[in-house]
Design a protein around this nucleic acid. Structure first.
Lengths: 225, 225
DNA sequence: GTATGCATTATTGTAAACAATGTTGTTCAC
DNA sequence: GTGAACAACATTGTTTACAATAATGCATAC
């Protein structure tokens, strides 16, 4: 095991537990495990070639993060987020990301302006080309870049954790063919407002965008679940 | 161990790991462990009469919660929150609790009005009697009750975790002798705004109160650390 | 007197065995 | 044929022992 470990990706200075936590988190967020799917320790041991201790530590960590739920003596499973909670998450994101957008508008420098405008350009092109995957990636980049520029730590951390929790709703929403018709102008307004160094406008643009996400999520999933 | 466990407080249906997590969290928040104090597993095993596995699970959970930090092969210690982060936490609380206050104003019923007004009364009396401890408790009760009435889950969870992280700043701030002169009217306005079922006013009252907490925290700790 | 290398110790990381619990399937009585 | 008791199995919870790592103190060379 020790020799084998040396040959593994990130075994340098990273414990097995952290490695398993990271990979399991990624697998859940990527949708490789369905909601409510059981996470049997033995299976995970084989899957990640790790010890039981590492697997248990990972499950404990992801339970605190809200990605996994455990029932005593019955094991762990992928936590299913229902529509009500998904909508609450969007509300919280609206409150926190609008705050970060305002801070970003106050602090942005030339490099930040260039990066944001570049993301905006990628979005335009992705929509023109009908490339949903590229648009989704640029969407992630935009939200992340705004939070990076804000210089904050606490709010982005919270947002990151919450985004992981309802990744499923976001993905399925983003797959809607004409969703960009609504969201592209909102995204571009966020870019312009932050680059204009107008905190009030930036905050409002971000809030408006996430309100739109809220409504689209609610309307789309109301029946279908 | 098994026989002994039966005689323990909450051993019914609660794993050792959960018990240790809960008690260690409480001890840290209560200030029984100083910031940056080392948390040696052996010591915690004796202190809580638990297995090493339980102690390790507890440390892992509290690390994710942000109360503990771990360094590989060097152990765990109580995480120290610096002033910048404490102020960020107050900002995030302002964003989330004002949201909850608005929701509470929309949803409150007669029972909620009675409970909020009762807390307001306790606050008035505590200030009159100069009872700082009673006032601090009522403060906690008020913020909690507003979040309970809001019916939300996500935002209150986040706030709870963040409040635990900078308990030290809150406590020392609350000990300021004439702090209630500023905060009591703010608290009473929150009560009245929520009871008046005015979401906009409630949101603004909560935001104003936490802005005041922000400024008081910044000014008081700016030099002293 | 200081610095460097080595041995010792303290502490955490990992693995494996054991115990307790819940689940499932089967048998037997009615 | 149905329901209850029971037994076999699967899975997690707990404990113990062992390995790896970093900190500490000491001896020795310069």
């Amino acid at each position: 095991m020790t020799q084998e470990a040396v040959s593994r990706d990130t075994s340098r200075g990273v414990s097995d537990a952290e490695r398993v936590t990271s990979r399991l988190r990624q697998a859940i967020v990527a949708g490789e495990f369905a909601p409510r799917q059981r996470l049997v320790e033995t299976d995970l041991i084989e899957m990640f070639d790790a010890s039981r201790g590492a697997v248990r530590a990972a499950l404990a960590a992801l339970t605190v993060e809200g990605l996994v739920e455990k029932v005593r003596n019955r094991g762990a499973r992928v936590r299913a987020v229902d529509l009500d909670e998904a909508l609450e998450i969007v509300e919280v994101r609206a409150a926190l990301e609008s705050l970060c957008a305002a801070r970003a508008a106050e602090r942005i420098d030339e490099g930040g302006v260039a990066r944001l405008r570049a993301i905006g350009e990628v979005m335009r092109e992705a929509v023109n080309a009908g490339d949903g995957e590229a648009y989704a990636q640029a969407n992630r980049d935009l939200h992340q870049e705004v939070m990076d520029i804000s210089g904050a730590k606490v709010a982005p951390d919270v947002v990151k954790r919450l985004r992981a929790q309802n990744v499923r709703y976001r993905i399925r929403l983003a797959m809607q063919p004409n969703r960009p018709t609504t969201s592209l102008p909102e995204h571009l307004e966020i870019v312009e407002a932050v680059c204009a160094k107008d905190p009030e406008r930036a905050s409002e643009a971000m809030r408006a965008h996430l309100n739109s996400v809220y409504e689209a999520t609610r309307d789309y999933f109301a029946q279908r679940g």
